[in-house]
Each structure stands twice: as structure tokens, then as C-alpha cells.
């Protein structure tokens, strides 16, 4: 059934169907944490990391649920396992490397409730990806998320020094930029087809 190459999966997840700009996943952190370049890059890195972990977890759970024939537990077990795993990782990092925690770990709790993470898990199951494909898909999604975040952070940082009219200040402006970026990313349509 699956004829997509890994490259196509990656391109699709990162550019053509960018998680933020085409699927609207992870909008909350996208709006919130994109104000500063520094936070944006770190957040991107953390999201990528968690996506990879949760993608592997989700693959495992799915396999398990197929065995016990309980598809209805899919959502609940995904979210619980992802949340707990992330929390474990967070605690682990906090204990092992406070520096790493400061730069990456503090983003972890926020990420748990990031729809992009759960989105990756659900979509990879829907698309019936294997383990390797899932990982590539998660990686692509993470790269796409980071890309969108970094681009918008750069633009927003530049616009902190602009005479933005008072009515378009804040979230509205970010959304407008996101809209234009979303149009830009339409240019990638068909790539890797």
C-alpha cells in the first residue's frame, strides 16, 4: 500500500504539508514562543526531540493495541504515554544536566499539550507508517515546525522595531505573518511528488 519514499515523507511533513502552516498543529506555542529568536530555536529543538520520542512510543503502542485488539484505547494511551514519557525525560534532564534543562528541558511540559506531537502520533498511525517511516515523518514534522517557528521569530523580532499600528499589534500581527508564510509554503506544493 505504501509507496512513498522516505524523502517524500520528509518533504511532505516539513514543507508541503507543514504542520503549523498547513495543518494548524502546534499553533499555541507557535504564537506564544515565536517572539524571540533564541526561545524559538530552543523550542524547535525540543519539539523535534519530543516528536521523535513520541513517534516511537506511538508506534509501539499501536502495535500493542493491534495485538490486544483494542483500537478504542488508541487516543487515551497515546496521550498518557507521551505525557508521562516527556515528564520522565524532563525530570531526567533536570537531574542530569541543569544546563541542558535550562536550554531545552523547560520547554518539555509545554510540549506535552502541543497538538503537533499528538498529531504526528495520530497521523503516522492513520497513514500506516512503519517504524522507520514514522521516525522520518516525525523528524520532518519537527523540522517543519522549527522552520516555521524560526522564520516567524525572525520576522517578529524585526517587527518589534516597527511602527506597527496599535490595532494590529500582538497576536493579530503574528497571525497575519503566519497567513502570508502559509501562502509562501504553498509554493512547495507538489515537491517530491
Amino acid at each position: 500500500m505504501n509507496t512513498e519514499s522516505l524523502g517524500t515523507i520528509f518533504l511532505n511533513a516539513s514543507l508541503v504539508n507543514n504542520f503549523v502552516l498547513a495543518y494548524f498543529l502546534g499553533i499555541c506555542p507557535f504564537l506564544g514562543v515565536s517572539g524571540k529568536m533564541e526561545t524559538a530555536t530552543k523550542m524547535g529543538g525540543a519539539v523535534m526531540f519530543v516528536m521523535l520520542i513520541s513517534s516511537v512510543c506511538a508506534y509501539g503502542i499501536h502495535a500493542f493495541l493491534v495485538v490486544i485488539d483494542a483500537p478504542y484505547l488508541q487516543l487515551i494511551s497515546y496521550i498518557v504515554v507521551i505525557a508521562s514519557t516527556v515528564q520522565l525525560v524532563e525530570m531526567f534532564i533536570k537531574k542530569m544536566s541543569p544546563a541542558l534543562f535550562q536550554s531545552l528541558g523547560i520547554f518539555l511540559p509545554l510540549i506535552t499539550t502541543n497538538c503537533a506531537i499528538l498529531g504526528v502520533a495520530l497521523f503516522q498511525t492513520n497513514k500506516g507508517y512503519g517504524l522507520l517511516e514514522s521516525v522520518v515523518y516525525a523528524l520532518g514534522a519537527g523540522v517543519g515546525f522549527t522552520l516555521a517557528l524560526v522564520l516567524i521569530a525572525g520576522l517578529r523580532e524585526r517587527l518589534t522595531f516597527a511602527e506597527v499600528p496599535s490595532i494590529s499589534k500582538g497576536t493579530a500581527l503574528t497571525l497575519f505573518i503566519a497567513g502570508i508564510l502559509s501562502l509562501c509554503f504553498m509554493g512547495f506544493a507538489g515537491l517530491g511528488a
Binding site: M1, T3, E4, T8, N12, V16, N17, A189, G190, A193
Partner: peptide, 8 residues
């Protein structure tokens, strides 16, 4: 049948 289209 299925295959890659323009968007997905």
C-alpha cells in the same frame, strides 16, 4: 486505488 496528487 491511490497515488500522490498535487497536495497529498
Amino acid at each position: 486505488a491511490s497515488g500522490q496528487g498535487y497536495a497529498d
